[in-house]
């Protein structure tokens, strides 16, 4: 039986939780097929990332270092991942369903004529996979009808491997023929924030159109976000209105989160938003419209004017600390 290869993301010398979770999902897939899990790490100078990668529970870590792999562009990464899959006897490649995973995985699938399932939320014992469609209103059980398979996994649906022994690590040298029309990386304007990463945070406070302006996100919502040590999110409506950048968007077309505590402020709860947060453990909704759909998924709903309730909540949370 073939091995299961995992695409290892890394940035700034560390590995995101999304990759640790992808290893966890890959173990479930490997349990069904009987193969090993192999974490692929691609980059120019991997340095300390190699050691971090060895702690995630994969059977083995395979490192490929090349100047052509400095940046995460889909065309070059596809060539590399296909070559690593062949070199490691892998017949399934698992990505986290992050923007990087969603960018590369389908391209790899087409390159290998592999069937692909994106944003998978469960692995069944018979090897079938479950994935959401229609903004999470439907969950489909799908079967991939090819020998070589590509899967991206929803990061809130799986867990990292706990208490794993360190993986063996090996370097693999590949010659990648970068095509003449390859994409060139120009720059990354990284979001700088002292807050937790939205998709990894234990607590998230999200704002909607009810905030009425970008300034109110800063003056009304952010104090509550910081009092709770939370990450900040937003509904698509708030992003559409230009109140906050798109990387805060939670929902069908944004990020999927499942924090321990989610507080939705001035969010009506369109199905597209609910698709991104309804697996949160505890959901709180604050909205002045008692009929807002978000109350149908909230554990605790407070029907109130957010401009009064949020400052009061912020002060009272601060006084708990």
């Amino acid at each position: 039986m073939g091995n299961v290869l995992i695409y290892g993301e890394h940035a700034g010398g560390s590995i995101p939780k999304a990759t640790a979770v992808a290893v966890g999902a890959a173990q479930q897939i490997a349990a069904a097929s009987g193969g090993d899990t192999i974490l692929a790490l691609l980059g120019n100078d991997l340095g300390g990332v190699k050691d971090a990668a060895a702690q995630l529970g994969a059977t083995k870590v395979v490192c490929v270092e090349s100047a052509d792999l400095e940046h995460e562009t889909a065309d070059t990464r596809t060539l590399a991942m296909k070559a690593v899959a062949e070199a490691t006897g892998s017949d399934t490649v698992v990505f986290a369903a992050t923007t990087a995973g969603k960018d590369i995985a389908p391209r790899l699938a087409a390159s290998a004529e592999a069937a692909i399932a994106s944003d998978v939320t469960a692995v069944n014992d018979d090897g079938t996979l479950v994935r959401p469609m229609y903004a999470g209103n439907v969950f489909a059980t799908v079967k991939l009808e090819s020998d070589f398979k590509v899967v991206s996994v929803r990061t809130t649906a799986f867990e990292p491997v706990e208490g794993a022994a360190a993986s063996a690590s090996e370097d693999l040298s590949l010659s990648i023929e970068k095509p003449a029309n390859a994409v060139e990386f120009v720059k990354l304007d990284a979001t700088v924030s002292d807050r937790p990463v939205l998709t990894e945070a234990e607590r998230v406070v999200a704002g909607g159109r009810g905030l009425k302006s970008g300034d109110n996100f800063t003056t009304v919502l952010e104090p509550l976000v910081d009092a709770l040590g939370a990450a900040m999110g937003a509904s698509r409506a708030a992003v559409d209105a230009g109140y906050v950048p798109n990387d805060l968007q939670v929902g069908q077309t944004g990020k999927v989160i499942a924090p321990t505590l989610y507080i939705g402020v001035g969010i009506s709860g369109a199905i597209q938003h609910l698709a991104g947060m309804k697996d949160s453990k505890v959901i709180v909704a604050i909205n002045k419209d008692a009929e807002a759909p978000i109350f149908s998924v909230a554990d605790f709903g407070l029907v109130a004017d957010l401009f009064e309730a949020v400052p009061e909540l912020t002060e009272k949370v601060k006084s708990l600390a």
């Binding site: 439907v138 489909a140 059980t141 079967k143 309804k278 959901i283 554990d299 009061e312 909540l313 949370v317």
Partner: peptide, 28 residues
Amino acid sequence: GRSVTIVSVQPPPERAAGRVVESVDELI
């Protein structure tokens, strides 16, 4: 031909109904 077969589709799991709180103090 489809390389991905849809075996079946299911509705999402239902979330148990929550409750309305009357004040910030009750919420906390």
